[in-house]
């Protein structure tokens, strides 16, 4: 997976963790007294007091780790300092170089084909000479 997709999935993960962190805070937080006129709110219904503070700490730690992972992925982005114009210029240069090497390759192929035809012609002549049993004059 490319790094931009990883970054997008990391953003979605951060959103998921932020949502769940706030959700658990709302679910587990003890009731708060809004005014002296109201009666004292009942004690928190969890089995022990430490259980409430553990869950938000764990989720907050996970959220911060996800944010740090996002920063690490941003640091690993292979973005060159050059902008769009430099990229397009580089593409044009590479295209021109590609065309030049293509012409060179075509020239080499044509020369190789020509030499192959010459060798085949020589081979054909040699074969004809052997078949016709021509002998060199060595008087």
């Amino acid at each position: 997976m490319d790094i931009i997709s990883q970054l997008q999935e990391q953003v979605n993960l951060i959103a998921h963790l932020a949502f769940n962190t706030v959700g658990t805070l709302q679910r587990d937080a003890p009731p708060n007294r809004l005014s002296p006129n109201y009666p004292e709110p009942p004690a928190h219904a969890t089995e022990d007091g430490s259980n409430f503070s553990e869950q938000p700490k764990l989720m907050s730690t996970t959220l911060v780790k996800a944010a740090k992972q996002f920063d690490a992925l941003v640091a690993a982005l292979p973005i060159s300092e050059s902008g769009e114009e430099a990229q397009l210029k580089r593409i044009s240069e590479l295209q021109a170089e590609n065309d030049a090497i293509g012409l060179e390759l075509q020239k080499q192929l044509e020369a190789a084909e020509k030499e192959l035809n010459q060798v085949q012609e020589l081979f054909r002549q040699a074969s004809d000479n052997c078949l016709n049993l021509k002998k060199p004059d060595d008087s």
């Binding site: 931009i4 970054l7 769009e84 990229q87």
Partner: peptide, 17 residues
């Protein structure tokens, strides 16, 4: 992040060339 996609496409094209 979506705005980075054109940059990524050009970089990929450079790599292929």
């Amino acid at each position: 992040l979506n705005s980075l996609r054109p940059h990524q496409a050009r970089a990929t094209l450079i790599h292929i060339l």
